[in-house]
Every structure is written in structure tokens, then in C-alpha cells.
Amino acid sequence: MAGSTQKSNQDTLTVTGVIDWAKNDLLKDPRLSFLTEEKNQPFVKYGGLALLALYLVFGWGGQLIVNGIGFVYPAYCSILALESTKKEDDTRWLTYWIVYAFFSLTEFFSDFLLSWFPFYWLAKCVFLVWCFLPVPWNGSDMIYSQVIRPFFLKNQTKIDKTMGKVTEQVNLLGDNVMHMASDAVKSD
């Protein structure tokens, strides 16, 4: 047990060590010290955003980067929201995930066509960031309140009936699989 705790601490220290190295040692290099100066911070931030935008337009692996941006940070914030006692942050991130699911479902059918456009990954990245930004004009709130919620409220009884039928079919399929598995075990 002590060995696994020590291994876990070593792994944590390794990750922490790399981050500390990047913050302290790398940025103290005289050739890179100008990056930490207050007057250059806007250039570093906006320059990084411009490089990311150019990479999403012309680079390789844009889908992975955009999906990481649209998933990793919101997932982290969702965990923090679940661990907090405030209801507002839970509602905010649940709204984001509803819009994200709606967008993912819509994108599934149009992705093959849209991904051929050169600015697709950049546009998707901007859209997802707009959906999770903590601003009054947050995309998730706007899309949920103006598109998803009215559609859901208008069609809720139809959706409930359809979901009931789907649930019945899934349960029936599960029962059939269980019977087939038990018959297979009995015959062996």
C-alpha cells in the first residue's frame, strides 16, 4: 500500500514539476523573460489566440483540439459545479451540456459536408467557447431558451411517448439478450 501511495505522489510530483519548470525555469530564461512583462501580456494572449486560429484553419488535428476545448474545460467546471453548494452553476453547466448534445447530434448529420470548409474547426471552436463563456450573452443560455426549450415544451407529450416506446424496446432487447445468454450457458 505504501508503494502505491509513493508511486501516486511521484506521478503527481512529476506533473507538478513540469508545470513548475514551465512557470519558473523556462520563463526565467533571459531570452523569454519579455513574455512575463506586464506590457507584453496582451501580445502573448492575443498572439496565442491568433496562432490557435491559424492552426485551426490550416493545421492538422483541428477536430481533436476543438473537441478538447469544447469538452475538457466544461467537464472540469461541471465537476466543480457538482461539488459546490450553489444551484446556479449546476444549471449553467447542465444547460451547456444540453446544447452540446443538441449540437453534436446536429453536427453528426452535417459534419461530413461542413468539415470540408476551411474555417469549420475555427467556427466550431468559437461557437463552443461562446456557449461556455461566463457572460450575459452566453450561447448556451440563448440557444436553450430560444430554440431547445420552446421546441421541447411544444412537443413534450410526443417526446415522452416516443421515449417510452424506446425504453420498452431497449428493455425487451435486454431481456432477449439475457435469455439468449442464459440458454447459451445452459447448453455448454
Rank of each mutant, 00 (worst) to 15 (best):
P30F: 04
T16S: 10
L32E: 07
A22T: 09
K39F: 01
E38R: 05
K23N: 07
I19M: 07
K7Q: 15
D29V: 07
D29E: 10
K39C: 00
S8N: 12
T14F: 15
K28E: 11
N40Y: 13
K39Y: 01
V15I: 09
L13F: 08
T12D: 02
L32S: 10
T16V: 10
S8G: 07
S8C: 13
I19C: 04
Q6S: 11
D25V: 02
K45I: 04
L26W: 02
N9H: 08
V18R: 07
T36A: 09
K39H: 03
D11T: 01
K39W: 03
Q10T: 09
L27G: 12
L27W: 12
Q6D: 13
V18P: 03
L32K: 03
Q6L: 14
N24D: 14
D29R: 08
L26N: 02
G17Q: 10
N24H: 11
K39M: 01
P42G: 11
I19A: 12
K39R: 14
L35F: 05
A22N: 09
Q41I: 14
D29Y: 02
K23R: 15
V44I: 15
V44M: 05
D25Q: 11
K45L: 01
Q41W: 07
V44N: 03
S33T: 04
L35A: 05
F34C: 11
K23C: 12
N9I: 13
Q6V: 09
W21V: 00
N24Y: 07
W21G: 02
G17L: 11
F34G: 06
K28P: 00
G17R: 08
I19G: 01
L27I: 07
K28L: 04
L13A: 14
L13W: 09
D25G: 06
P30E: 12
K7G: 03
Q6G: 04
K7Y: 13
S8D: 13
K28T: 05
N40D: 08
D20K: 13
E37H: 11
E38D: 10
N40T: 05
N40M: 08
N9P: 02
A22M: 08
N40S: 10
L35C: 01
L35D: 00
F43Y: 15
L27C: 12
E37M: 10
N9E: 06
D20E: 13
N9R: 06
A22R: 00
D25S: 12
P30D: 13
L32I: 07
F43Q: 09
L35G: 03
K28H: 08
S33N: 08
W21T: 02
K23M: 07
R31G: 10
L32R: 08
T36N: 06
L26S: 03
E37D: 14
A22E: 01
Q10D: 10
D20N: 15
D25R: 09
D29M: 07
V44C: 06
L26M: 14
N24W: 06
Q6W: 06
L26R: 02
L13T: 03
Q6P: 00
P42L: 15
T14C: 14
V18G: 02
D20V: 07
V18M: 09
F43N: 13
P42M: 15
I19W: 00
V15K: 09
F43G: 13
L26T: 02
D25H: 01
A22Y: 03
V18A: 12
L32M: 12
N24Q: 14
